Computed example of a mutant assay.
Amino acid sequence: MAGRARLSAEIERWPVAGAFVIARGAKTHVDVVVATIDRDGRSGRGEATPIYYHGETAEGVHETILAQAGAIADGAGRAEIRSTMPRGAARNALDAALWDLDAKAGRPVGLPDPAPLVTAYTLSLGRPDEMEAAARAAGPRYPLLKLKLAGEGDAERVAAVRRGAPSARLIVDANEAWTGRDVAAEAAALVPHGVELIEQPVAAGRDDLLDGVVSPIPLCADESCQDRTDLERCRGRYAAINVKLDKAGGLTEALALIAEARAIGLKVMVGCMLSTSLGLAPAFLAAQGADWVDLDGALLLARDRPDGFAYDGGTMRPAASSLWGGA
Rank of each mutant, 00 (worst) to 15 (best):
F309D: 01
F309S: 05
P282G: 08
L301M: 13
D294L: 02
L274I: 06
Q288W: 13
Q288C: 12
G279N: 01
D304Y: 04
G289V: 00
V293F: 09
S275F: 00
A286K: 01
M273C: 05
A302Y: 11
L299V: 00
G279T: 03
L285Q: 12
L299M: 15
Q288A: 11
D291W: 13
P282Q: 06
D294I: 05
L300P: 01
D291H: 15
L278Q: 05
Q288K: 12
M273P: 07
D304V: 01
L295K: 06
F284M: 06
A287V: 04
L300E: 03
L285Y: 00
W292D: 10
A290L: 08
L274K: 11
F284T: 07
Y311N: 01
T276S: 15
T276G: 15
D291E: 13
T276R: 14
L300R: 14
F284L: 02
F284S: 05
D304R: 01
G308W: 04
A287H: 03
W292A: 09
V293K: 09
P306N: 10
D304N: 02
G297V: 08
C272A: 12
R305S: 09
A286C: 13
A281Q: 06
P282E: 12
G297R: 11
G289N: 09
M273Q: 15
V293P: 12
P282C: 06
G279M: 04
A287I: 08
A290Q: 03
W292L: 14
R303S: 15
L280E: 10
L280A: 07
D307P: 01
D296V: 09
L299H: 07
L285R: 14
M273E: 13
L300F: 07
T276A: 05
L278S: 04
R303P: 00
A290V: 00
P306F: 11
M273I: 00
L300W: 04
D307L: 11
M273R: 12
L295M: 08
P306G: 07
D307N: 15
F309Y: 07
L299R: 15
A287L: 04
Y311I: 00
L274P: 10
D307E: 14
R305Y: 14
A283C: 03
S277W: 02
S275T: 14
L285E: 01
L299A: 13
G289T: 00
W292F: 15
L278F: 05
G289W: 06
T276F: 06
L299I: 00
A281V: 07
F284I: 07
A302P: 09
L301E: 04
D294A: 03
S277Y: 03
L295C: 09
A298T: 09
L299K: 13
V293C: 12
S277M: 05
S277L: 03
A286S: 02
D294Q: 02
F309N: 02
A310V: 15
T276Y: 05
C272V: 08
M273T: 00
L274M: 08
L299Q: 15
A286W: 04
R305I: 14
C272R: 07
A287T: 06
L301G: 10
L285P: 00
D294N: 10
S275D: 04
R303Q: 14
G308H: 05
